[in-house]
Nucleic acid binder design. Structure first.
Lengths: 153, 153
DNA sequence: TATTGTTATACTCTATAACTATA
DNA sequence: TATAGTTATAGAGTATAACAATA
């Protein structure tokens, strides 16, 4: 994972102008950084995002949670399976609509979510530190704009 | 791929603070945008990046090209297979070191690379347009910093 | 012994199709 | 008929292990 070769400068000039390349490798770097931060909690970033969505407001069905995260329902089945296996969430049949599984955090799930979120935030702050606070905030805002602009389904 | 559900605002507030989520979904959006732009050339973004690296300087072996792109050599085998199948590159045994395959662009490969790069640049410019020129430049620079900072192998 | 290319293999992430139970 | 959850399956993308040719 790097141009440990010879003329890395020319390569950076070449690839550093490609948005796709930069996004991909920034993501890889972040994963290297945040992964170890979350490992003590037995979670990865996607699972934590599920916990965060479930903890946010009213109880959600699997499908609602999937839509919020932008994954499809078959992916959510596996995510909830994993989280339930760890004792962090519980499924129960909705009584208003018995097709739906309402997914709720357990006591332990609430605790793990809170602690893991702290760890994630710290890891992201550390990862963004080379930018300085102002540029880091600008980066986040720019990404928010780009994820909201064109085709909303 | 969206919170077409109900309270999308709360979700955006929640997920819009997660760098990993923003990077991932920005990348997905970019792919939706750039994919169609490259399709007429019969390429995807990764293949174009290979062509760009090969066109940049002196002829490279597969391993050198792989290192520059941050993929491993087994991945590069498949990439070169695909590009060679399209007649865009040619392999030849290096005469100084007969273990090496030197990969070079064909005439057609040079033409396709140039045109596809123009299309890619136009697509990225369009994608970044909502930011304005200044913030777009800031975003690119921030990502460059983040991909170069911590652990260089 | 080490390196380059290659193949085979496996693992992750994701999506599609089809089934079930409910509505 | 349509929806929610599930399963099976398949397709990318990537990485590891092992092999042949070469150094």
């Amino acid at each position: 994972m790097a141009e440990s070769d010879d003329d890395g400068a020319a390569v950076e000039e070449l690839l550093g102008t490609r948005l796709g390349y930069l996004l991909k490798h920034t993501q890889l770097r972040l994963a290297e950084h945040a992964g170890p931060a979350l490992a003590p909690f037995g979670l990865d970033a996607r699972e934590l995002a599920v916990l965060a969505v479930l903890a946010a407001g009213r109880p959600l069905s699997q499908l609602e949670a999937a839509r919020r995260l932008g994954v499809d329902r078959t992916t959510m089945v596996a995510l909830v399976d994993a989280l339930e296996g760890k004792g962090l969430v519980e499924r129960r049949r909705s009584e208003e609509d018995r097709r739906r599984n309402v997914v709720e955090l357990t006591e332990g799930g609430r605790r793990v979510r809170a602690d893991a979120e702290d760890a994630r935030e710290a890891a992201e702050r550390e990862f963004l530190a080379p930018l300085g606070a102002k540029d880091a905030a600008r980066l986040m805002q720019a990404l928010r704009v780009l994820t909201r602009t064109p085709n909303r389904p």
